[in-house]
């Protein structure tokens, strides 16, 4: 196994609002290795993006706070860094791609400016060297005629091209870890496939570790070596992609799999999990999935299940799994 680059231990990030404390991330642990893609899967509002923003320490303050846990990047606990030290990690060591390429580029600066800014800041380059780095970043993302594109403004480019530019910004300073927050959700299907292939290439060339946030199991199967399934602020199951697909253990994971529409099975309705995820403000005392779980028992209502390793690298938090 290659070197672990990021290790998150028992991360807790809460939002303190007038209506109460929202436990958006409540004890999340996982690790990502060099050159590996780790998928973070789950419904909307289950804490995937909050986990990502916590790693960057960019929660919207003062409401959002990291209240506990450790985040080790290459051995350094990010939560112990000063604000200024953390800022220098961003963009250089860790980068992130946001969901919507139409809004994540600044409309009044050229593409080249927006990449050059990072290059100047983190690599301390000046003059022509900056342009060279900008062009090589654009090349890495296979953007055609980069010398021309760098002089364009975002509104002159298509959505797919913009998302490549966002990728080029993220990769411009050769980060060790890249967080991709549903980077293909806003793209149409053909561009999506292209973008994913492109990413695998980028990873092969740079050996960057990727956290891929998505709700799409198709994307997971295509991109990720290992997956963490999140539910209501917790990772309920972690395993290799193969195992998750073949033998999902947690009832939530199985239910998620069943709700993926399949062409080879006829049916009147698409399967969906009954009920709603619990409010993160007011969590049930036992297992979080208990109210919607088809196999729940008494103990599930009373006590939260601990995480157990059922086979090497396969972790599940469920009373029913032994």
């Amino acid at each position: 196994m290659s070197k672990v680059i990021l290790r998150v231990e028992d991360l807790r990030s809460f939002f303190f609002t007038r209506k109460g404390v929202v436990k958006a991330v409540d004890g999340v642990s996982f690790y990502v290795c060099e050159g590996e893609t780790f998928g973070l899967v789950g419904e909307s509002a289950c804490g995937k993006t909050v986990t990502a923003l916590s790693i960057l320490r960019l929660l919207p303050e003062p409401a959002g706070q990291i209240v506990g846990g450790k985040i080790f990047l290459d051995g350094t606990n990010l939560l112990e860094l000063s604000k200024e030290e953390m800022r220098k990690y961003r963009g250089r060591m860790i980068s992130m791609i946001l969901q919507d390429p139409m809004t994540s580029l600044n409309p009044v600066y050229t593409v080249g400016d927006q990449i050059a800014e990072s290059v100047r800041l983190h690599q301390g380059l000046q003059g022509e060297k900056v342009d060279e780095e900008v062009i090589s970043a654009l090349r890495l993302l296979k953007i055609p005629s980069p010398e021309m594109i760098m002089r364009n403004y975002p509104f002159q480019l298509s959505g797919g091209m913009r998302q490549r530019v966002v990728g080029a910004i993220a990769m411009s300073c050769h980060p060790r870890l890249l967080i991709a927050d549903e980077p293909t959700t806003a793209l149409d299907a053909t561009i999506q496939a292209q973008y994913l292939t492109l990413f695998k290439d980028v990873q092969k060339q740079t050996n960057v570790a990727i956290i891929f946030i998505t709700h799409d199991f198709g994307v997971v199967g295509n991109m990720c070596q290992r997956v963490g399934v999140m539910y209501a602020g917790k990772i309920v199951e972690t395993a290799t992609t193969r195992e998750i697909f073949k033998t999902p253990k947690h009832p939530y994971t199985s239910a998620l799999m069943d709700s993926v529409p399949r062409l080879d099975q006829k049916g009147d309705r698409l399967y969906s999990i009954k009920g709603q995820p619990p409010s993160l403000r007011d969590l049930p005392p036992g297992c979080r999935f208990f109210p919607r779980c088809p196999v729940a028992e008494d103990i599930c209502r009373q006590k939260e299940p601990a995480e157990v390793e059922i086979s090497e690298g396969h972790f599940v938090s469920c009373w029913k799994v032994k």
Binding site: R87, G91, L98, S104, N106, E117
Partner: peptide
């Protein structure tokens, strides 16, 4: 894009 600017460090 402001979030992005902060992500860039």
């Amino acid at each position: 894009y402001i979030k992005m600017a902060r992500i860039k460090g």
